[in-house]
Simulated assay, not measured.
Amino acid sequence: MSTLLTVTGVTKAFAGNAVLQGVDFAIGPGEIVGVIGPNGSGKSTLLNAISGFTPVDAGRIELGGAPLQRLAPHRIHGLGLARTFQLPAMPEKMTVFEVLLAADNRRHGFWASLCGGAEQRAQEAASRALATQWLGELLLTGVRDTPAAALSGGQKKLLSVGCALMGNPRLLMLDEPTAGVHPNLRRDMVAMLQGLAARGIALLIVEHDMHFIGELCQRCIVLDRGRVVAQCTPAQLSQHPQVLQAYLGSEHPVVLEAAV
């Protein structure tokens, strides 16, 4: 498999406290990888470092061979990396459809679409078509004209995924996508994310829900105190000594799910 994202020796400290320590891993196109670990293990910091929101102290991050570690988040987004956050904030005066349109950074704006000629109008039409497509695939068509801030927590998570997809990313990073989401919607999310991977979009997912990880991910990266202590399949987690030590302080085989 070819490599899309490469993380090599990434290190980050805050006020002398090492949060990431020599993190190494790689992800290929269309691969679904989970990032798990105890609270405070550096999972969200890792996503922030890759996406440019947190500058690294050392190491190298590459997307398709292009170095990312000195780029601003919008530059990284332009190279094909998109992400969501744990608690998506939605505007109160924009509908779901309008939020999706605003997330397409290829658009030239309303007045440009009217006055800027055929090319701009064509781009506007393409953006609206893409937003309509994601509304359907994310099960949000029924709330198309609803204020985005009025959505349920799960629907806001789906809308944030839709906003990320409006930029046609090669890599999509999700930070706890199932937190506060109804179990029925989680099943729909698994199918939807598997469909994205089938199109070649790589997924890097920080998540605490081990059922979700087991259903969705092909491989897991396990962090403990800022270090990668294991890379294995979800089925191997409950028997992996270093994983058990990270979560439980024990090397005895147990059901990991019960401890997370």
Rank of each mutant, 00 (worst) to 15 (best):
P169R: 07
R121K: 15
Q245Y: 00
G37F: 06
R187T: 14
R70C: 00
D145M: 01
S250F: 03
S44F: 11
V10Y: 03
P91D: 02
V243P: 08
V10G: 05
V10T: 03
A118H: 08
N168E: 15
A198E: 15
G37M: 08
L165K: 04
T141A: 15
L174A: 06
L71S: 10
L87S: 14
L47S: 03
A258D: 03
A246S: 00
D24Y: 00
L79E: 13
G16P: 03
G142E: 13
L204R: 11
V161N: 00
L158A: 14
E124Q: 10
Q242N: 09
E98H: 01
P177E: 04
I61K: 09
A235I: 07
D175P: 02
A131K: 00
L159K: 01
I213L: 14
A191K: 15
L114Q: 15
M192A: 14
E137F: 02
P88H: 03
F53N: 06
Q236H: 03
V229Y: 04
A13G: 02
H211R: 12
P241W: 08
A131C: 04
I32M: 12
E119D: 15
V33N: 11
R219I: 03
H77G: 14
M192K: 14
H252V: 11
G109N: 07
R70V: 00
C115Q: 15
A125F: 01
A246P: 02
V99A: 06
M166T: 01
L63W: 10
T178G: 08
V19G: 06
P169F: 10
R144E: 07
V190C: 12
L185W: 12
P253A: 00
P169Y: 09
A26E: 13
A246R: 00
F212S: 13
T3N: 03
V96S: 11
P241L: 09
E207S: 09
G249F: 05
E176S: 06
G16S: 05
A198L: 14
E124K: 10
T54H: 09
C220W: 00
V228R: 00
G214S: 13
V228Q: 08
L101R: 11
L139N: 12
A230G: 08
L81Q: 12
R83H: 03
L47K: 05
W111G: 01
P88R: 08
W111K: 08
K156A: 14
A148R: 06
R187M: 14
A164E: 01
M1D: 14
V10Q: 02
I61Y: 06
N39E: 06
A82E: 12
R144M: 08
A197V: 12
E257V: 01
Q239P: 01
P91Q: 04
H252D: 06
S51F: 00
V255I: 08
V143K: 11
L5W: 09
Q120S: 08
M1I: 13
L185P: 06
L151N: 07
G226N: 04
G22I: 03
Y247E: 06
L244F: 04
V228C: 09
G9Q: 13
V229E: 06
G200C: 03
G37H: 11
G226M: 02
P55N: 07
A131P: 07
V206D: 12
